[in-house]
Design a binder for these strands. Structure first.
Lengths: 161, 161
DNA sequence: GCCGTGATGTTCAAACCCGAACAACAAGTC
DNA sequence: GACTTGTTGTTCGGGTTTGAACATCACGGC
């Protein structure tokens, strides 16, 4: 019990001003952008951001279908959260569930035609928001740096469960 | 009604591969990091990330107190979300509410001594996570670029309500 | 074939967030 | 002072996420 805190107690490497600024800017900006995106999607099609992301992934998949677990990994959602959202999208007629032929327990989330049309209708407005507040404000150089930086962290997080 | 969609319909400037990669990396990484942080904070002190952020802001404020609205802006939370979290922190004895002397409707969130001690105990472990997965993996150059990039977006989002 | 281990997707209760509605007050105008 | 306008913080209902528990099935060794 005692040495569970040993490392933290002995080595508090605090963030300096530059590091603190980077971290706070990162977190605050994401939340603000997320809020703006939710607002736009809800007004345009009654969709939430997680729901939109699901439609995007399915539209990019072969045969417009994906296993639940793989889809959950892609959109970074818990299994139960994905179950809930797929149920919602099913009620809206944008997604269907299908049995997985290769695995008896498996479930496939399938994008319907209505779902594809919905995505095509909503995507331009969504992209416009992402552009207006993030992409178009960054130089090619900045974009590239941010991508490599994010990937380093993503890789580290995904490889440690 | 017709030209509400005009711009989007006429000008669907899709994201190219580089832009798409940047955007997806940004969103995915944040969610993964957020998940890891929540896990660490909950295990260490039964705190959520929003709650931790509140304690941090209060500890940095003069007299360890802040108006609700200002605090909500800082941590990027809705008014009702902050009301809820302050109530939770009050139950845990980490924060108290006080009347605002200069404004009769105002409420001050005040960090208690127990709250300060809690923060001091938890902060090292939290910082360690932020370092291990983000800060320490980025060069000084990358950190600076990311900060300026985030700030551009933050500024744009905050100035448009 | 038969366990043991692990993966898959769902269910459930609890916690949490959002937005609209609301009462109370501030600040300025007339 | 009364009126208007805007701000402050809370409340409430509905929607969403979480993590643990669970039933079901895949896969390997023996």
């Amino acid at each position: 019990m005692a040495y569970a805190y040993t490392e933290a107690v002995m080595d508090p490497r605090w963030l300096d001003a530059t590091e603190m600024a980077a971290w706070h800017a990162f977190v605050s900006t994401f939340h603000l952008l997320e809020r703006r995106i939710e607002e736009q999607l809800k007004a345009a099609a009654g969709l939430t951001h997680p729901q939109y992301e699901i439609l995007v992934r399915l539209s990019a998949a072969t045969d417009h279908r994906m296993r639940m677990t793989e889809l959950a990994r892609d959109v970074v959602a818990s299994k139960s959260a994905l179950t809930y959202q797929i149920t919602q999208l099913e009620k809206a007629g944008l997604v269907e569930r299908a049995h997985c032929p290769s695995d008896e327990r498996g479930v496939l989330a399938v994008l319907t035609d209505a779902g594809m049309r919905c995505l095509e209708r909503v995507a331009p407005g969504h992209v416009e928001v992402v552009r207006a507040y993030l992409i178009d404000r960054l130089s090619r150089e900045e974009l590239h740096t941010m991508t490599t930086a994010m990937r380093k962290t993503e890789r580290a997080l995904r490889s440690s469960h």
